[in-house]
Design a binder for these strands. Structure first.
Lengths: 201, 201, 201, 201
DNA sequence: CATGAATGAGCCTTCATTCAT
DNA sequence: TATGAATGAAGGCTCATTCAT
């Protein structure tokens, strides 16, 4: 029984810790998305409902917290986009699904991650380069497949994929969604219509 | 004679002042473009070759310096784009010219200004909203004209204009140019091809 | 049986507690000696193999832990030196024994305590002043005895004792031992020779 | 005249800056001596009568301020001791002069620098190692000279010099001076008497 | 009683802004 | 008027201490 009690205690503690870290990541994600990387650590702590020390226990610096947030969001994004691509068979349909996935995430308040290469290239950002490469490759393959089967007009698939990526950047998603009265599906439809018109052969 | 000397001094001073301000704006524009709005005022001063005090004499705060840089660049951009629109008669040609103008500016090392609305809306940015509105209106009118004459496919002209604007953002311009081996004309051609395909009816 | 069990448990617990405290004192002593008073409580806890909470249960503050370490080491040092003084009859021999005792402690990795008065006087250090006074008195008496019997040259016994103490400070012991290739007996011999030459009448 | 005025202005400014830095070094020296390296930068600034920013303008970190203080004091100390050694011809007299110099500095409130090797060896301390080596060499030579001419007893000159250095450490100087009712000359005399008795052949 | 996660005051450092020269 | 030294508020981070488990 003593053993059981101890185990339960240990398990409970660990669950709390786990939940605190999730709260921190969530708060950081929201604030970074809302106000950029210049948010104060204290603000992150406040929104997470913890003390600053708690953040620093797991993330030794602001930079690393930012990187962690980025990594988490990246994995999520990659997963969503790959999933969307898998769920459709026609290349144009795949593209449409990918775009809708990204636009709908903003409606779900899920953090959007910037999928574009960073021209300044300053922060290594852990997984970001890998993410960019994999997403870019994913899109380029889908487009190339469409070109081979004739449903997408010819042209540099790399460049066309890059253009798609630009139209999936967080700010673009937000701007276009806002212009469509926050009806992300409408915004996505416009973009999809535009893209497919622009890509179709 | 005393008067003459003073006059000469005053005139020279005025010319120096003028030149100093131009240097400051130039330096600020470059640094803001290179490293974002977090550059230090001292760095701006150093690159401009003046003391910090000199900057503060004309621009009472960093925010206002930033706004001034923005305003200058905006005016330039608006001028270029309006010019490009005037020089062509067919709506699609106008669009093509506008896009080329923006892409070529980055090749000329001229600072690109972000023409998109800022979703965070944080900085008042003096002239920016006006610029955005006028550019957006310009594009929407060109597109609407194309729709009326049948050369551009139907759809929400506001939204289509917004999509165009997203593809003219500094980072997009840089990313796509880089992907085309810094051949901005090639990048612009791809985008133009894409846009016209996407817009054409 | 319940009683027996509880008793056994209590006894075992008490033994554990005892051992934990010894470990904590040992770890603190080592770390204070190695890295000065700026060691982190967490490092002490880690080396002791306990949680920080365990330290705070017995020592309500870092200062008190430091004082406790000091007190323990002091008692040990005082014991060693008094012992050394008792084991010899000739005053000069007593001194020699005292010095050797202090130098050999450093070779045994035993923590050396600073026997000198602290000019800044900052930390109350519980027992330290008492220790200093008693050691100083001990040395002064040994020297005065030597002076009375003529084996030590005349002079202010207080001051001569103070000089001896300076040559017994931890850092001096370490520096001189190191210079003698870590041969503490050789270092002690040099100091003893020096001291006895300087003290002898 | 304009030129003159400007020059005067420039010179005056530079003099102020110079004086500020001297104040900072002075304040830092005093506080480091009084309370060790854990003083707050703000306290240094307050005692120097400047803002913290002013300190950071010249000394990019606390560590570097500390190093600068150390370096200044070192040069002064080395100068004093070398001077003292030059002013006497008999080796024993040289030693006496060196010791008096160090003891009298503490009376003059001049910062004493620790001339001994640091067993922990942690801080690089800019010039300190060089200082230690040069002082140690100086003392060893003086002692060796005394040994050659017979006025100092034989023994390891390196070790004897090290013992002298220990008796010249700031804390020793302060402790012994205090014990002699702050009569540093008396304290120095005792140490000199002790040393020469211990060194004389 | 032991644990170690959480806390937050406090320190070092930066940088926008002011002001004496 | 131009200069750049001085200022000090603010933010990142540490670590002694507390407390829920």
């Amino acid at each position: 029984m003593a053993v059981d009690t101890e185990d339960a205690g240990a398990r409970r503690t660990r669950r709390d810790v786990q939940r605190n870290m999730e709260r921190v990541l969530q708060a950081a994600q929201e604030l970074f998305a809302e106000r950029g990387p210049d948010v104060k650590m204290e603000d992150v702590a406040r929104r997470a409902g913890v003390g600053i020390g708690t953040i620093y226990r797991r993330f030794p610096s602001k930079e690393q917290l930012f990187a962690a947030v980025s990594a988490v969001a990246c994995q999520h994004t990659r997963h969503c986009l790959a999933q969307a691509a898998d769920d459709a068979h026609d290349p144009l349909e795949k593209l449409r699904a990918i775009i809708l996935a990204q636009y709908r995430q903003s409606a779900r308040q899920a953090a959007l991650i910037d999928l574009r290469p960073d021209p300044s290239g300053v922060p290594p950002d852990l997984d970001r380069p890998g993410l960019y490469a994999s997403i870019h490759t994913l899109l380029a393959r889908v487009i190339a497949a469409g070109q081979r089967q004739g449903s997408i007009r010819s042209g540099d698939a790399q460049m066309l994929a890059a253009i798609c990526l630009e139209l999936l950047s967080p700010r673009t998603v937000q701007n276009l969604s806002r212009l469509a009265d926050d009806d992300v599906d409408a915004a996505a439809d416009q973009v999809v219509g535009f893209l497919t018109a622009g890509l179709r052969s």
